[in-house]
Design a protein around this nucleic acid. Structure first.
Lengths: 322, 322
DNA sequence: CACTTAGTATAAGAAATAGTTATAGTATGG
DNA sequence: CCATACTATAACTATTTCTTATACTAAGTG
């Protein structure tokens, strides 16, 4: 009502004034620092509070105190302003045909395998390269809000138009067991195993974790809650400690990079259950760059990571494809 | 002259209009989409170009084309606006006493050792936790511009006031060699080794790389240029391949997590040369949080990483301290 | 090629916004 | 309780942003 739903809640000038008040400790002092009058600052802050529908300062004490939302605002406003100030110089530095900054999201399971190849390849194509590891869900959101230029992950965002996708590798899910534990040969054996040993999960924040839960439900298996981790390292380490077993993948196992035989790997019994890692970018914004990165990644995987996995787990056969 | 040096180069409204033009493909179409008149859009874009001192669109073709700086502007403007729009809802969600978001920079050499403990600990203290691995230089800059709340790295920023620092661990530099290579016992032997085998370096962008170069100069050693990497994994992997030797540290070796005996480690001959990893935060903004994180980190290191290093490299003695 | 169409640029005035001065009210310290 | 230094509100002014009006330009069409 007050404003259109997509209207901007403030402008940068208001944030600048707000931060000045935070630093100066009072509106009057901020006004002096900014060469404004005190009412101008007072109004700007009041307007900012109105637009964000929050109270930023506690006026009942002096010197002025930040409320909890005010503290968050200070944190975010400072970040936003510093980014804004970087933009203009960056534009002027931009050299024809060379990107100033490429931001890549890389799913944790490929961080070790691909961060070096991606960084090496992109450094020939961009001034600055930023590679963030993490969960695909976060990266997918960041791509859509343009906080990332491309990501590699386990979700190809089929439902979103205007993206381009390059499949890098497909791999089956596997079972990870503490050394010496016999491998379950059937889904029933898996269920029996889960009675003796907790299942170490990927957290429900990760796409892999969600997929695994769904698969277990399809198999009709209900397995008691156990520890959950976001990263392959966390899950694998827990299994290595003997604290449980896990459903994971060959690349996740490679990512954890534990000592040989620290955990045992076995095929996942039951119907075929696999995942595909895909490079996703917005169409027509990076030219051929996304395609070229996908080629470099596939090359790096075929040269180095996949042969190692095939040696360590010969039973993978051609379920591991690139 | 045109504007004060610290003046804002633009307003969020201008970026909104700019992005609308990018999407619509023409200023006239953008004006319709925004319920403005065409001259309003034309003026806003002209003003934005004037303030940033760039040309964003190529008007000599239709439909309007983005110039290279225009492309960068699109990328950055979209990111900035999406962040700006997130702020107000975030403020309203803020619960008393609990931080909405804590952003941590973690030096690559501790990424494996500490990302899980930090994430686990902070999830009890904040709604959302963001951990970025990378180079300390980038994190130090990000802390000062408030894009990070705290970082753990190899620079304690002594020259900057208003920060608080917590030392986590000190470790000596060591030599990494391909398996079977005899360890150099003296600086002279190190120089001789460098004649036979290239030195794999940490890049000059990393603080560690800079420190190592300085130390070599102090020793009077000039070593021919070889390959350089930003990350411990890159450097260690090269040595494991037999492509050279490296000067590194125990924690970097642990971070690379190669198989046992994939590389040989030996003391660095010559005078004592060590580094200290420190947690740095802005004073008085996070309360006790920075201190509490440092305690959690030191605990995690003493429990898990340091004992392993002492076992693998018993000659470290008490040069490795926490 | 003239000619239409859909677009961009510029000038001048209207509307909205951000600033000012003036003044009343409030927290804190002597 | 009073002095001081601050914040809030009202009314006015200056500046900026947007509109109308009009001239100019790129690209397609017969």
């Amino acid at each position: 009502m007050t404003t259109k739903p997509d209207a901007l809640p403030f402008d940068l000038r208001a944030l600048e004034i707000f931060l000045s008040v935070c630093e100066a400790g009072s509106m009057a002092a901020a006004a002096r620092a900014l060469s404004l009058t005190q009412p101008a600052v007072s109004q700007a802050i009041a307007d900012l509070e109105l637009r964000t529908q929050t109270t930023l300062f506690d006026r009942s004490v002096r010197p002025l105190a930040l409320t909890p939302p005010g503290g968050v605002m200070r944190q975010r406003a400072a970040a936003l302003l510093s980014e804004a100030r970087q933009i203009a110089p960056l534009l002027r530095e931009t050299v024809r045909g060379r990107l100033a900054l490429v931001r890549v999201g890389l799913v944790d399971s490929l961080a070790r395998a691909l961060s070096v190849p991606i960084a090496t390849y992109l450094s020939t194509r961009a001034e600055q390269v930023s590679i963030l590891s993490g969960l695909t869900a976060a990266h997918a959101g960041a791509l859509l809000t343009r906080n990332l230029d491309l990501f590699i992950g386990v979700d190809d965002l089929v439902e979103i138009a205007g993206l381009e996708r390059f499949e890098l590798v497909s791999e089956p899910y596997i079972v990870l067991l503490p050394p010496g534990t016999p491998a379950p040969e059937t889904p029933a054996a898996l269920a029996a195993l889960a009675k003796r040993l907790p299942l170490v999960r990927y957290s429900a924040r990760s796409k892999t974790g969600i997929e695994i839960e769904r698969h277990l439900r399809r198999l009709g298996l209900t397995i008691a809650a156990g520890p959950a981790f976001d990263t392959p390292f966390g899950v694998t380490e827990m299994v290595a400690c003997g604290a449980g077993f896990a459903i994971s993948t060959p690349l996740c196992l490679a990512e954890a990079a534990l000592a040989d035989h620290a955990v045992a790997a076995a095929p996942l019994p039951g119907p075929v259950f696999a995942r595909t890692l895909t490079l996703v970018a917005r169409r027509q914004e990076l030219g051929m760059l996304a395609h070229d990165v996908s080629v470099a990644c596939r090359h790096a995987l075929r040269q180095s990571t996949l042969p190692k996995l095939r040696t360590a787990m010969p039973w993978l056969g051609d379920s591991l494809t690139s």
